[in-house]
Design a protein around this nucleic acid. Structure first.
Lengths: 200, 200
DNA sequence: ATTTTAATGAGACTTTGGTCTCTTTACAAT
DNA sequence: ATTGTAAAGAGACCAAAGTCTCATTAAAAT
C-alpha cells in the first residue's frame, strides 16, 4: 500500500496537460511534447514527470465533446425495445466518434502500436461497454447469460472508433453510409441473440 | 506518363529491404530504419531512397504466413451454404491475423495514425473484401443487391485485424473466445441478410 | 516567520526518424 | 575496354522523444 494522495497542485497541472493535449489534437495532428507543455504553460520536464510517455498523455486526453453518457441517454426511457435502444446508443456514439475523428485516430494509433510486452502503459479506457449494457439493461432478462455476453462483445466490434477506421480506410464509406450499415448490423445482432434465447 | 522501368538492382534491394523488415517485425517490435538497413545489408541512405518513410516500408512488408487465398479457399467447394462459407472464411483469416499479431499491429498503427491530409503514403490494401465476396459468391443470387453490399460492409467490420484490437485491448479476450464471438456474429449477419431478402 | 519538502523550471545529453550532399561503385551501351 | 549514368555508400545535419541533474519556487509544517 504505497498509495499517496496527489496534491492539489499535481492534479491541477495534470488536468492542464490533458486539456492542452485535447485542444491540440482537435487540430488533427499529433502534437509534440513541447507543444503540449507550452500550451499548458508548463515546463517540458514537468510534462514528462506526469506522463512518462507522450502516448500516455494522448491516450488519456479527454474527448471534450460531451461523450455519450450511458446513464443520461436512457434516463427517461423505460422502453424495453432492445433493438431500438442499442441502435440509439450506437447513433449517439457514432456522432461523438465522427466529430472527434482526428483525435481518436491519434489515440487509436498510439494504443494499437504499443509494444505488447510493455505493461507500463495505461490500458485503453472502455466507454462502449457501459453504453451497450445501459442499452440492453431493460431487456437483459430476455437473454441467456452466455448469449448476453456474446452479444455485448459482438456489439463492441461495431460501436467504437475501430469501425470508423474500417469504413473510411478500407471501404471508403462516408459517415452516413457507415451509420446505415452499423444500424442494420446492430439490430440484426440483437434480434439474433433474442432468437437464440427463444429457441433454447 | 513519367513511368520508368525500375532496374534489376533497384528491385533487388527493394525486395531485400521488405524481407528484412518482415523478418524483424516477426520478432514483435517496431524495427528502426538502421536495423532494417543493417539486416538488408544496405546503407541507411539507400533504405530511405526506396522508402521515404519508415511507415511505408512497414506497411508494405509482407505477411509471410500464407495469406488466406480467396480463390484457393473455396476452389473445391461448390456449397451454397452462405453461413458456413462466411464462417469458414473468417476462421481462415482469423488464423492469419492472430499468427501475425505483432506485425499487423504495427501496420495498423501506422496506417491509422497517418496525417489524413497527406496522400504520399500508400493506401491500405484490402484483403478482406475479396475473401468475403468469394464466400458469398455461390449464394449471391439470394440477396438483394443493396442487402448484399450492406452485408459485405458489416462483415468487413468483423473480418480484419481491427476486431482483434477490440477483442484484445478493449475486451481482454483471447483468440479462442474472439473466434467464437466472431463466428456467431458472422452467421447471425448472413442469416439476417437472407431474412431481409425473403421478407422483401 | 522559518524550515522542510515536494513540485517545477532549465538545460545538457542520447537515440531515432528523416533530409541533404558528396563521393564511390556498379551497370550498360558503345 | 571505355565512358556515361544511375544506384549505393558515407556521413553531416536537424527535429523530436525521452532521460538526467541541478537550481528554484511554491506549499505545508513547525
Amino acid at each position: 500500500m504505497t498509495e499517496r494522495k496527489p496534491s492539489n497542485q499535481e492534479l491541477r497541472t495534470r488536468k492542464d496537460l490533458l486539456r492542452a493535449a485535447g485542444r491540440l489534437m482537435k487540430k488533427g495532428c499529433k502534437p509534440t511534447m513541447d507543444e503540449v507543455a507550452a500550451e499548458a504553460m508548463v515546463s517540458r520536464a514537468t510534462a514528462y514527470r506526469h506522463f512518462p510517455r507522450l502516448d500516455a498523455l494522448l491516450v488519456e486526453a479527454p474527448i471534450d465533446a460531451a461523450v455519450a453518457d450511458p446513464v443520461g441517454l436512457f434516463a427517461n426511457d423505460p422502453s424495453d425495445d432492445a433493438e431500438a435502444r442499442a441502435d440509439r446508443a450506437e447513433a449517439s456514439l457514432h456522432e461523438v466518434v465522427y466529430q472527434n475523428e482526428a483525435q481518436l485516430r491519434i489515440m487509436l494509433a498510439n494504443s494499437i502500436g504499443r509494444d505488447m510486452t510493455d505493461d507500463t502503459l495505461p490500458a485503453r479506457q472502455n466507454r462502449r461497454l457501459p453504453l451497450i449494457e445501459a442499452a440492453l439493461a431493460t431487456s437483459r432478462h430476455r437473454f441467456r447469460e452466455d448469449d448476453y455476453q456474446r452479444l455485448c462483445a459482438a456489439l463492441a466490434l461495431i460501436f467504437g472508433p475501430e469501425s470508423m477506421v474500417v469504413f473510411r480506410d478500407v471501404l471508403g464509406f462516408d459517415a452516413e453510409t457507415a451509420r446505415m450499415v452499423k444500424s442494420w448490423a446492430v439490430r440484426a445482432l440483437v434480434r439474433a441473440a433474442l432468437e437464440d434465447a427463444k429457441s433454447a
